[in-house]
């Protein structure tokens, strides 16, 4: 039994709903950990309310945030996956199903940049990035709705032969500019090198990385640790009303580049929307966060 477009359509809708109603377990764990470390009363109380909000949404099958963002999916297609039907259209239809059926209903966030008209659909929506995975016999779909709180502060700059110091300073400048506003504690994803588009994709992929994995590149593993400490020395804290926890994680990837080297910084807010599913050739679905 191949992976059918009907299954892809249904998983597309379910992933979005999960992203809106449940924050990842690792994210809750880090918020709880931060509660024990925070020195500011305001920050501790804000973290408590955050965890209450996450639990309440899960228990009541409700939205965590009213800004449901715009639909963004990353899809890895295994070369051994057997697919019956269209994939791209299944994603479009799956999101349309979700928008029409989810309870409580969601606000219209998909905005035409030329007219500012709002809808649940639009040109190139959902935004889907495809990758191939050699020899894999599955399709992996990751859903990460992108909303304004963190989305408006993401940035990219192209440098020429930047030093590590220059790269790190740029990441901090982006976080400093966002300041109190991206609903901290945030996840910071950084893409170094490649090209303009590839750096942005790497940064996006890195905010989707689960917490606790050690970066295989030692230079980046060190950079992640010191940037996390640096960001948490800034003082913005939970919801930007002061505290020690401005970021939950800094995740960085790199790609070989030219002498021009883009650095992209992506941000996720504290609810850290990310959900994924692996669709196997036998029709089974494996869910992950």
């Amino acid at each position: 039994m191949p992976i059918t477009s009907a299954l892809i359509r249904s998983v597309t809708a379910t992933l979005y709903e999960r992203a809106l109603k449940k924050i990842p377990e690792d994210t809750k764990a880090v918020l709880r950990q931060a509660q024990g470390v925070e020195r500011s009363d305001t920050a501790r109380k804000t973290l408590t309310i955050m965890l209450q909000s996450a639990d309440a949404a899960e228990a009541k099958d409700h939205l965590i945030c009213s800004d449901v963002g715009i639909p963004v999916y990353s899809i890895k297609v295994g070369t051994g996956a057997r697919i019956d039907g269209a994939i791209r259209q299944a994603i479009v239809d799956g999101f349309a199903d979700l928008a029409a059926q989810i309870q409580p209903p969601i606000l219209r966030m998909v905005t035409n940049p030329l007219t500012h008209q709002r809808s649940h659909a639009g040109k190139d929506m959902p935004i889907v990035a495809f990758d191939m995975v050699d020899d894999a016999d599955y399709i992996e779909i990751v859903c990460a709705p992108k909303a304004m709180g963190s989305g408006r502060w993401e940035a990219l700059e192209t440098f020429v032969y930047p030093s590590l110091e220059t790269i790190e300073r740029y990441v901090l400048d982006v976080v400093l500019k966002a300041g109190s506003q991206p609903c901290p504690p945030i996840v910071v994803g950084v893409g170094i090198g490649g090209t303009f588009d590839h750096a942005a994709r790497m940064a996006k992929q890195q905010i989707l990385r689960p917490f606790g994995q050690t970066n295989p590149e030692p230079i980046l593993a060190d950079m992640e640790k010191r940037l996390l400490m640096a960001i948490n020395s800034m003082g913005f804290g939970p919801m930007g009303t002061g505290g020690d926890t401005t970021a939950m994680a800094v995740h960085i990837d790199y790609a070989a580049s030219h002498g021009f080297m883009p650095v992209a910084v992506a941000l996720n807010c504290w609810i850290n929307r990310r959900t994924g599913a692996r669709l196997h050739n036998d029709g089974t679905v494996e869910w992950f966060e």
Binding site: P24, E25, D26, A29, V30, Q33, A34, V37, R39, S40, D41, T42, A43, K45, P210, F211, G212, Q213, K225, L228, M229, A230, N232, S233, G235, T241, G242, G243, D244, T245, M248, A249, R278, E286, W287, F288, E289
Partner: peptide, 27 residues
């Protein structure tokens, strides 16, 4: 796949007592 890994160790850097915590009422 669904099990979260270990938590990041260095969430915070500045030693306690470096700052005066922000004013806040308990109630």
């Amino acid at each position: 796949m669904s099990t979260p890994g270990p938590l990041p160790r260095a969430l915070h850097s500045s030693p306690p007592g470096e700052d005066t915590p922000m004013h806040s009422n308990d109630t």
